[in-house]
Design a protein around this nucleic acid. Structure first.
Length: 178
DNA sequence: CCCTAACTAGTCT
DNA sequence: AGACTAGTTAGGG
């Protein structure tokens, strides 16, 4: 196990009037919008500021976004730059029990490695819930840090990706070089 | 609240 | 190509 990151589930109560600090970073895949509470990373999106803030609002309806750089952002961008380093990122995200289980499994995939949706389904003890797993992975709010790009179809093709298949491919190539 | 139907970034025949 | 799958979501009762 090379990843010591952990997920803190966000309760509906916490979400109310929660301050979310966000900041913009440029990277080779495009512009990142990184969002974090004082507890941990809660959302990372690729795209322009306005669009991503709308996404953030959709997920954390009653939160208050504040543009301000904090330590959590630094840790996140550090890890995105070099996925091979062992890190201890803390996530603070909202999700159903099922989703959190899936995302936790994703954290255990090593950089450069891939695995199938079926494999994840088996890991969480619901071997037939493959479609549902895919659904949950698609809802992953934290681009790259929860490595949904490392999950591919069992026939070896890439499957889908929220940020576009070319990004998924590039990211995998980048990781396999490390 | 419960029920139903309509979504998936999948997988097997 | 078609059937099948299970969890989430949205809409109606």
């Amino acid at each position: 196990m090379i990843n010591s990151s952990k997920i803190i589930p966000m309760s509906p109560l916490e979400e109310n009037n929660l301050i979310i600090n966000y900041y913009i970073y440029k990277y080779i895949y495009g512009q990142f919008v990184i969002c974090a509470t004082d507890k941990g990373i809660c959302y990372i999106g690729i795209g322009d500021e306005k669009e991503m803030l709308e996404e953030l609002k959709k997920r954390y309806k009653y939160s208050i976004p504040v543009k301000k750089a904090i330590k959590h952002h630094e840790t996140a961008i550090f890890q995105i730059n070099d996925p091979s380093i062992v890190n201890n990122i803390t996530f603070h995200i909202k999700g159903t029990e099922f989703q959190l289980k899936v995302w936790n499994e994703l954290l255990n995939i090593s950089p450069g490695q891939t695995c199938s949706y079926k494999h994840i389904a088996e890991k969480i003890g619901k071997p037939k819930a493959v479609r549902a797993v895919a659904n949950a992975i698609g809802q992953n709010p934290v681009a790259f840090l929860i490595p949904c790009h490392r999950v591919i179809r069992s026939d070896g093709t890439l499957g889908g990706y929220n940020w576009g298949l070319d990004v998924k491919k590039q990211r995998l190539e980048h990781e396999s070089l490390i």
